[in-house]
């Protein structure tokens, strides 16, 4: 008998399992969005279409401040972490050997695999230890740090795909190190940088655990504020705020995907 490669198509159940997984993933999101437009105060009983909860969200000073904080943190943490990730990626992928390269690679990737609660507690203790009480800046610093590995992922992957011959050719054609980076490597990396930045943005925007630990009073971000709201009971305002968060996240990812596909 000829042995063929395994194909999921040969397992009819796979379609069903996929469907089930999709329902579990997306049905709650759909319900959340739908009930954000519910007229009723009790968020599980549908009585009619309304945008009143969005109006309430926009009128709620605390919620608005939390949303602004989230945006400020993400808008600062994204470019800073991406700018740090670019030279890190170049170092890991383009320098042949340097002391502690393997250790450095492992350390940078650690936040991706370490339980977030560990990072959160460690960051909190560290900030207490050095007495850092800079309000929103505390949150921003923490976000920059955990965003770096996310921004790094697509940039490193892209560097691995760009043939070395191309940079060699630029070197051969009288390019300086900086000239080659600016004229050749950086433009070829742009789609990956956009992807890395949007990943960092989304991760920063929806981070709860680390922010919850390190955010001092007055520096609450939207996810942390929403959690606070839920403790009092699920209200339609929470639905509306979460919907807005969802829309921003999807918009950012869609934008970066559009940029990436246009480039290539």
């Amino acid at each position: 008998m000829i042995r063929k490669g395994f194909s999921l198509k040969s397992v009819p159940e796979s379609a069903f399992v996929t469907l089930l997984a999709m329902i579990f993933l997306y049905l709650p999101l759909i319900v959340l969005v739908v009930y954000a437009f519910n007229q009723n105060r009790v968020s599980t009983i549908w009585t009619g279409f309304s945008t009143i909860w969005f109006e309430r969200v926009f009128a709620d000073d605390n919620l608005r401040r939390a949303a602004w904080n989230s945006l400020i943190v993400a808008l600062v943490a994204t470019p800073v972490s991406t700018l740090l990730a670019i030279p890190a990626a170049m170092g890991f992928e383009r320098e042949l050997r340097f002391r502690g390269k393997a250790a450095g690679e492992a350390l940078v990737a650690l936040p991706l695999v370490a339980p977030e609660i560990v990072t959160a507690i460690a960051t909190l203790i560290f900030f207490r230890l050095i007495g850092l009480q800079a309000g929103l800046l505390n949150v921003i610093i923490a976000h920059i740090v955990f965003c770096i590995p996310f921004a790094l992922l697509p940039i490193r992957a892209q560097l691995r795909v760009i043939p070395r011959d191309i940079e060699d050719a630029a070197f051969d054609l009288y390019g300086t190190r900086w000239g080659i980076f600016r004229k050749i490597t950086l433009p070829l990396l742009m789609p990956a940088i956009a992807a890395g930045a949007s990943l960092a943005f989304v991760v920063s925007l929806d981070d709860f655990l680390i922010t919850f630990m390190v955010a001092p009073a007055g520096a609450t971000t939207l996810p942390v504020y929403l959690y606070g709201m839920l403790r009092v009971g699920v209200t339609p305002e929470a639905n509306a705020a979460a919907t807005l968060l969802l829309v921003v996240s999807i918009a950012v990812v869609a934008l970066s995907m559009a940029l990436t596909s246009r480039r290539t």
Binding site: P163, D165, I166, D168, A169, A170, F171, D172, L173, Y174, G175, T176, G179, K183, I184, P187, L188
Partner: peptide, 30 residues
Amino acid sequence: NKRPVNTVFQSYALFPHLTVEQNVEFGLVQ
């Protein structure tokens, strides 16, 4: 980059984001 010696690579190694003209111009710009 300090030798008056240039290479035609087996893979051609053209700069994919630059036009034909800009590719040819690269060494002269540098």
